[in-house]
Write a protein that binds this DNA or RNA. Structure first.
Lengths: 146, 146
DNA sequence: TTCTATTAATTGATATATCAACGATATAAA
DNA sequence: TTTATATCGTTGATATATCAATTAATAGAA
């Protein structure tokens, strides 16, 4: 019988837990506020807001998602009339993505809440601790990316 | 136009990225080694190995999963003949979960690789850094739970 | 210019997450 | 004992992740 440490002591498990707790916290806040949106949909909105002329491959890369996932999330956001896709002149393989007027209004309305959600996780962290956790996570990523 | 920090500077985003990188790293290692198993399926195996008489609700709680997800993951593990479900005498609402002989052999075979995967992420971390990152993540979880 | 290779996006299949509804059983209350 | 409530597990619906195959369009090579 091989002996092994408990799952609770495994760092990946702790990261997974933190990630889930943060996502659930954010999702519940959206629901409580009556915003019909998921965390992943919000991230896509945010990225389009920040990069008005982004295409789907760039969107996928920067959000660590598959282009297939992006296609489906965008279908939902277009259905909700928050995002619009327009063919690009010059290269008809891809689209220009942008927020609709409704999408921009929605984004601005939700952003304040999102900012306070971001703070909640580190509410009692010193500046040094905030830097430290980012530094260590970045270091882990480097160790795991070939 | 509200100004907002870049996604790359948001801590939740960095945690999400670390989590995905760690999962992909682990999943690729399983595939390369020819092990037909997902990360989530492995976690369920590990938990049953550690707790021979666990039921599905406890399994779900300890892995931060929904009981519906556990039902479906177990269906797959049973189909692969790695796990068996036996009715419990006394309370027929739930099952006793355990690894089959094949499941135990598989677990022992894979465990060595899993241990080295766990180390890879923190390969250049000092002991103090390992403690630090666990402490800070635990602190974040407390800030975001209930 | 024509053939080939690459790129952007979509779709299908399977695994997982989450919520809600449900069935079977067990426990507590009346 | 009957009734009400709580618990364990399953299933359906929708969203997302991943991989593979496919379409449409562009770019590069012959």
């Amino acid at each position: 019988m091989p002996v092994d440490e408990k799952l609770e002591d495994v760092l990946y498990y702790l990261i997974d837990k933190t990630n889930k707790v943060a996502r659930r916290y954010s999702q519940e806040a959206f629901v409580k506020a009556g915003y019909d949106i998921t965390v992943d949909q919000w991230l896509v909105l945010k990225k389009i807001w920040d990069n008005k002329e982004i295409n789907q491959v760039e969107l996928a890369t920067s959000l660590f998602k598959d282009t297939a996932s992006i296609t489906r999330i965008l279908q939902i956001l277009v259905r909700k009339k928050l995002v619009k896709k327009e063919s690009k002149e010059g290269d008809r393989r891809h689209y220009l993505l942008s927020l609709t007027t409704k999408g921009e209004q929605f984004f601005k309305q939700v952003l304040g809440m999102v900012k306070s959600m971001r703070m909640q996780g580190v509410i009692d962290f010193s500046e040094a601790e905030k830097e430290q956790i980012k530094r260590l996570l970045t270091k882990m990523i480097k160790n795991l990316e070939e």
